[in-house]
Write a protein that binds this DNA or RNA. Sequence first.
DNA 1: ACCAGAGCCCTTTTT
DNA 2: GGGCTCTGGT
Length: 740
Amino acid sequence: MSSKLLANLNEPQLTAVTLPHTSALILAGAGSGKTRVLTTRIAWLLTTGQVSPSGVLAVTFTNKAAKEMLTRLSSMVQVNVRTMWMGTFHGLCNRFLRMHWREAGLPQTFTIMDTQEQLSMIKRILKQNNIDDEKFPAKQLSWFISSAKEEGLRSNAVEAFDEYTRKQVELYQLYEATCQREGVVDFAELMLRCYECLSKFEALREHYNARFRYILVDEFQDTNTLQYKWLRLLAGPNTAVLAVGDDDQSIYGFRGAKVANMQRFEHDFAPAKIIKLEQNYRSDGSILEAANALIRNNNGRLGKELWTDQGHGEPIRVFQGYSDGEEAAFVLDSVKAAMNDGVPLDDIAILYRSNAQSRVFEHGLFNAGIPYRVYGGLRFFERAEVKHAMAYLRLINNPEDDNALLRVVNFPPRGIGAKSIENLQQVATATGVTLWQAACSGGAGSRAQVPMAQFIGLIEGMRIATKGLALPEIVRHLLDASTLKALYVADKDGQDRVENLEELISAADNFLRETGGVIHIENFDGSISESDDPMSAFLAHASLEAGDTQAAEGRAALQMMTVHSSKGLEFDYVFMTGLEEGLFPHDNSLNDDGGLEEERRLMYVAITRARKRLHFSYAQMRMLHGQTRYNVPSRFLDEVPAALLKWLSAKPKNLLAMEPHAPLSGDSSGRNLSSFAASIGSASRTDSGFRIGQQVSHAKFGHGVIINADGSGKNVQVEVNFVDHGIKRLALEYAKLTAI
DNA sequence: ACCAGAGCCCTTTTT
DNA sequence: GGGCTCTGGT
């Protein structure tokens, strides 16, 4: 297997995969084989014995990307992936904190709050402190707190120069105290705690610094300040950090991502090499040309131009509709035509800037009986009924969790109304205890005395009854004992919810089977122990990985999503809709600086999703938020060369037919690299004591790594990838290589 | 205590 | 247009 590892990589890809033990930055354009490079790099490091799985840390942003990496890696090498630190930033921090909860100052059973829960906690705090929520909206506060944390700032470190900010900081402080009292953490807290813990405990930091020989970061352009600082802390003097990213695809500036981290990386990590992956294997030439032309309008790019040897392909089809309805009809007709041509529905995507735009298309598709799938709705673990069930689970795990208690203390209704809960909160605030503690001491007032005692009895009864049971059985018991399921069974509209609750039992079962419900802990002495706490693990899983939007993926369906959620995906046919000023670029984006450029990168992402056929469309008039708007075509349409566009609607513009073009650029001479790749694995050790993966030094070429060897005796030739001189083939007898 | 109808806002989103 | 909060009636 491993002999084929390096086959069919192009030159820059090969260089990146076989880099010596140094830090490097890879500028990977859309569709240039970024994930392949990352996974092959890890596989290569492992098979050549340069590092053991436990010495690798590979980090991504989404669970999907992490999973993809893991799947691809396991198909390349046989390796115990459990000892490898591969996952999302937050997932890895969670793993760290489960091991080092003492040092981090957290209870062992700490639970993770998602955004909804964070918001409700803030609302609670506002109410308890009689703060005008018109003046301090909860949403804005949660943004304030998360942003501060993502800059690495605790409440006492935020500088406040005005009264308003001072009040926000004060509330941030209250929020911190509440989290600590209840033993819960939000997403940003996972990162910040982990970061603080590492910076505070030198021994801990040194351990991980020495352990991680290689750190690989995916989608580096999306890292925020804290994530960058975290990486710097984890990387020791002998850690090689490989950052892979694309500044042109940075579309999360609005939530704190800093493209500038790519420049900072050049400064702080002194990468020996910056490698550009510019050959695109996804899209036809005209699509890439459009993308290149558009993005050229941005300033301060790191500079990168996509090319393909696949030929020009078709022009981009453009349609102007009179109304959003007419635009939808155009898309619908085109989809039908594509279906007739045998294009699978999964290979067709409708993209839009904002979620509200999906409805017209959904309507049309529904009436036409075309199956479709909308991304970005409520996910499984975010559904109310599932949240309720999980709240019971959380209370068994940690009754001090106020969010969980409030969610179910009167659901299903059991006679504990708003007034009683208010009493309870008053007592809790006054005495500085959690709601559960307040409830246990009768804080809900005399009216609620009996029902509250019953509730406490219910939770404790559940804990006793489920002790020792397997996770799915625990869930099943909770659903019955809480009468949650019965409530929905009795509701004639509750069918879906009952199904989701039953699905939750399956989810617990799957989770147990896939992970064993166990968190692996590697101790300082290298031994491995397991934290056998399936419940905490499952709760973390539910928060960190909220699950798919739609559980059943089953049959083929047309894909509908925002441009943001399309990043990383690709389709044969792409319909980029709603190309109107105000919508895309969005009005609200024009206010913040760099906003327009981020919108343009968004458009760049949209264009580069298409493999074969790309459609642009817009409407002169549309209904949005219950109001009719008249829009002019997006400026982005003008930024694509007219020669690449084919107007389908009667638009007073040139109707240029495409001239067949020569391939865009780049040479396709492509050295056959597979020949020397073939011997990796089989001849991984030469007679002379050098081996594949060996770090070497050469008088003239400097620092490098052996990536291949063949011949025997005096005729051994080695292939070395030098940091500064690239890949060289040398005769071992004469080359005077020194092992380092 | 609980439910039903009226008013209000509204990019993008993963963890 | 739709999801969420607030208010008033039972």
